[in-house]
């Protein structure tokens, strides 16, 4: 298949896909007419086309796949499409809960609450409702508590390719060292 034809196919897939387009999904879509050109290569060709022709969007690598996202400057106009004024921001409590889950997953509600020192029921509910977290089974121990994990939507929301891309959680030793410096 020619690169130009492939570019068109990938473009069509990116517009229609309900979730980030992965290499595996791309191959499934192509079926027998296997491309021999890796998706990443087609994407970078497309990306440079978009850049040259000054499009209002670009291709973002997210959650292990690719998706088309709009440029930031169009936010004021896009907001008009939604009844609420754009995307709702997460509360501090929800962000804290999310941070704990993303670094320690899978975790139970109890794990979260013992770190935050405060009941986290409503934050968890918000995050589940917004599909940023999902329940992945139960703990083996007594009580068989529910285990929480981050979802694909979480990666999309924060523009991450994988959980491994999260900035490193600072070690307690680093914090201590810094605090000591401050005191000196």
């Amino acid at each position: 298949m020619e690169i130009n034809e492939l570019k068109q196919i990938v473009e069509a897939l990116l517009i229609a896909t309900p979730e980030p387009l992965t290499e595996a999904r791309f191959n499934t879509c192509l079926g027998d007419s296997s491309s021999r050109i890796p998706l990443g290569e087609v994407i970078s060709e497309l990306s440079s086309d978009y850049e040259k022709s000054d499009r209002a969007f670009f291709i973002k690598e997210v959650a292990g796949g690719y998706q088309i996202v709009t440029n930031a400057q169009f936010e004021p106009f896009i907001k008009g499409l939604f009844s609420k004024s754009g995307k709702l921001r997460l509360s501090q409590a929800a962000l804290e809960t999310l941070a704990i889950v993303s670094y320690k997953q899978p975790v139970t509600r109890n794990d979260i609450e013992s770190i935050r020192g405060v009941s986290s029921d409503s934050s968890l509910r918000t995050l589940l409702d917004r599909k940023l977290l999902e329940i992945r089974g139960r703990e083996d121990g007594p009580g068989r508590a529910l285990l929480y994990r981050t979802s694909t939507e979480f990666l999309q929301y924060f523009g991450l390719n994988s959980v491994k891309d999260l900035p490193r959680l600072r070690e307690v030793e680093d914090i201590l060292a810094e605090d000591q410096d401050e005191l000196v």
Partner: peptide, 10 residues
């Protein structure tokens, strides 16, 4: 979150 907020996707 602040950085990703203005970007919209399908």
């Amino acid at each position: 979150e602040r950085f990703e907020r203005p970007h919209y996707y399908n």
